[in-house]
Design a protein around this nucleic acid. Structure first.
Lengths: 206, 206
DNA sequence: ATTTAAATCAAACGTTTGTTTAATTTAAAC
DNA sequence: GTTTAAATTAAACAAACGTTTGATTTAAAT
């Protein structure tokens, strides 16, 4: 009938999971938000937990592409590749911050740990590509000798810290009450520039 | 009778909140873990939510001291002060990572938002001190011109990313299965050194 | 037009939830 | 030793939870 009804449920669920957590979100709430009968969730997905897994799976495929082409782009040097990834990733998080919040919450908890592997697998590709670029840069002596893994941690950690908690973001940036970091282009630029500056200083060997 | 029974409940609650989230933790579970009757929670704290608030309040006071003395330590230059804060903060998180996990989860959710102010207030002092040091360093031209707020974000973001999700940490560092980032002194040193290196490169004006 | 299967629904299922009650035990005050 | 208040308990509370049922509607297949 409605072939996108599953999708509607997944989208409603994700919003609620991001704002209230998995156990904080009830099936009745999701069904109401999606405009469907509460029985439809179990009809389509089998259970609340399987819906959650389906949501992670469905949203994560969105991020699995690209990035490898950056690695093999001969027109860019290592530092330019890092810059591209920074821009790319900030745009991803701002456009899909609810999904990233869900993922991040889930990884901090010690529940449904079987899911952690799936989530980590999405990051794996990104980490791999970044690691290769950093290693390459160090080999060519255009990068200074750094800790590759923790450099990646700093890269992602800065973005997540800046973008995944609105309260913390507002506090640190001290904007007015209706400031929204996910739509504010000025802030996005500011964040991108900062991370680039940090990474240039940290990596560059001049 | 037992004057530390409230404390026992708070400690049991915090562990469970950190692993399962607020709504994922039941009062019966906490009571069992603390070895008290389930009615004692409401008897002492009034409600589950008030217990949560009491926990945040009680644990946060632990972090409210120090740090100002670092600011006024005339024997240290600005970079040395930053180094001290890095060491200090990594030690805090590793020794109290469950508390930091709870705080971090809470800030990502859009529930109990009245609590966010209290939580943010704990960070406020730390941010203030760091900001003063960075501003001072920039004024003296020993620091390069940077974005002070986002520099703080990078500092905290790196630590949180590295220490608050065990799955992510294990994946990035690729240690064996029973590697524990909170007790592993080698990893702690490695993290401290990395953050220092990043901050030196980012801030230092030589 | 009839059949058949998928989709949708309101209602009910048995649990678990946070909280309260009312009785009992404990310990301090007098 | 009696009184009084605080602490502790088992039991019960209504509400909300995820899930299932069985009937009904919808749409495709024959």
């Amino acid at each position: 009938m409605h072939p996108d009804k599953k999708q509607t449920i997944i989208n409603a669920a994700m919003e609620l999971f991001a704002d209230k957590g998995f156990e904080g979100t009830s099936i009745r709430e999701m069904a109401a938000k999606a405009g469907v009968n509460i029985a439809m969730v179990n009809y389509y997905f089998g259970s609340k937990e399987k819906l959650f897994e389906a949501m992670v799976e469905e949203k994560s495929t969105y991020f699995r592409e690209r990035l490898t082409e950056v690695l093999n782009d001969a027109s860019k040097n290592e530092l330019q590749k890092i810059d591209t990834i920074i821009e790319d990733y900030v745009n991803r998080i701002t456009s899909q911050h609810k999904y990233h919040r869900v993922i991040h919450q889930e990884l901090m908890l010690q529940q449904r740990e079987a899911l952690h592997e799936n989530i980590i697998a999405v990051f794996a590709k990104n980490k791999e590509v970044l690691k290769k670029i950093i290693d390459q840069g160090m080999k060519k002596k255009v990068f200074r000798k750094v800790d590759p893994e923790l450099t990646i941690v700093t890269l992602f950690g800065t973005m997540h810290q800046a973008l995944l908690s609105k309260s913390m973001c507002k506090f640190l940036i001290a904007k007015d009450a209706n400031f929204d970091p996910y739509t504010d282009e000025v802030f996005k630029k500011r964040l991108i520039n900062h991370i680039k500056q940090v990474m240039h200083a940290h990596l560059s060997n001049k």
